[in-house]
Amino acid sequence: MKTEHNPNIDELLVKSMLDEASVAEQIEIKQWLLDDDDNQRYFEHFELIWTESKRLARRSTVDENAAWERFKARTVKQRETEVIPMYPKPVFRVLRMVAMVLMTAGVGWLSYLLATRSSSHEMLTISSGMQTLTDTLPDGSIVTLNRKSSISYPQEFAGTTRPVTLTGEAFFDVKPDKSKPFLISVNDVTVKVVGTSFNVKDNAEKTEVIVETGVVEVSRDTQRVRITPREEATIVKANAEMRKGIAADQFHNYYRTRRLFCDGTPLWRLVEILNEAYDADIVIGNQRLKNLPINTTFDQHSLESILGVVSETLSLKVEHHGDQIILK
């Protein structure tokens, strides 16, 4: 059944939208929807126009209640004179035309905004997967992502800042531009720089920033610190505490330089980095071994060769139990 065959359907749909339809009228609408697929499409279109008109009505000064009463009065009068229109009611025809014009203009404007925004603010996301990855950002800054890390940034830094979002760990070598600060968002921590090189690492326990060159500002809520070369800022997630101190080692560089530089490094710290770097499960089987110092440099060595050197240097035994490695 086509819409034109039921001249009262617009009125019934309006009453349904206003929750004023009687049970009999609701049944009539349901039957009309079942009669023809075109009726279902008409209803969906009508509902879309109704929703849009409600949004526009919020900015209108028209008294919609009074308008509805006038509409019902006209409808009752038409019933009394038993006038059967050959075409849809003029008021609805006009409303449909106006609504279609508004919707067409709205869609066109929305499409323009989206097209404009996508051309200058389209976000790009780079993920490293199981390998480290180096990428050049739109401003010429260089970022090196550690494994299982990702970074998102706009296709162009068109605003007054250079914003990026980091997940995981990355080393940044930022191109200087005093007029446009470089901002890194990592969870609820913000790292702000102008031109410098530094490492940012985020995991389940803490967020850590270590500076190699320049000055970096790290902030979280009302807390704020400035750090310089060889200094680090650490935000512990358990208590949201921010600490500033001297970087204890250079292990933040291992994924970028492929080198582990140990200078009096305690065994527990080397094990911690080896587990991270090689996705291993190494444990120290004897607590008295934890703080034994190591003084050597491992340059692109395999895990087995590193553990061999550690075993020889500290007179340890390396035992394999399934995937777990125990140092005794």
Rank of each mutant, 00 (worst) to 15 (best):
M1Y: 04
E4K: 11
L13W: 10
D19F: 05
E20N: 14
A21W: 00
S22W: 13
S22I: 13
I27A: 13
Q40K: 10
E47D: 14
L48E: 14
I49W: 06
S53E: 09
R55G: 03
R58K: 13
S60M: 10
T61R: 11
D63K: 09
E64H: 09
A66L: 15
A66Q: 14
A67I: 06
R70Y: 02
V76D: 15
V76I: 11
E80K: 10
T81L: 14
V83P: 00
F92H: 07
V94T: 08
M97Q: 09
M97H: 01
V101Q: 03
A105R: 03
Y112F: 15
Y112R: 12
L114P: 00
A115N: 13
H121T: 04
H121L: 12
M123D: 02
M123R: 13
L124K: 13
S128M: 05
T132R: 15
L133G: 01
D135H: 15
T136E: 11
P138F: 05
V143N: 08
T144V: 12
T144N: 12
N146W: 01
N146F: 01
S149G: 06
S150N: 13
S150L: 08
S150H: 10
I151R: 06
S152K: 15
P154I: 05
A158W: 08
A158Q: 03
K175E: 11
P176G: 09
P176F: 07
F182W: 04
I184K: 05
V186M: 04
D188L: 07
S197M: 04
F198G: 01
K201W: 12
D202G: 01
D202Q: 07
E208I: 02
I210H: 06
G214L: 07
S219H: 02
R220K: 15
R220M: 05
R224W: 00
R226P: 00
I227W: 01
P229W: 00
E232R: 14
N239F: 07
A240P: 02
A240F: 10
R243N: 12
G245W: 11
I246L: 04
A248M: 01
F251I: 10
H252S: 05
H252W: 14
N253R: 00
N253E: 14
Y254L: 03
Y255T: 02
Y255A: 06
Y255C: 07
L260A: 09
C262E: 12
G264E: 08
G264P: 01
T265Y: 08
R269A: 09
R269I: 06
L270F: 12
E272F: 10
A280R: 08
V283A: 12
L289A: 08
K290H: 13
N291I: 03
T296E: 08
S305F: 15
L307I: 06
L307E: 05
V309D: 09
T313D: 03
L314T: 06
K317R: 14
H320L: 07
H321S: 00
H321L: 02
I326C: 13
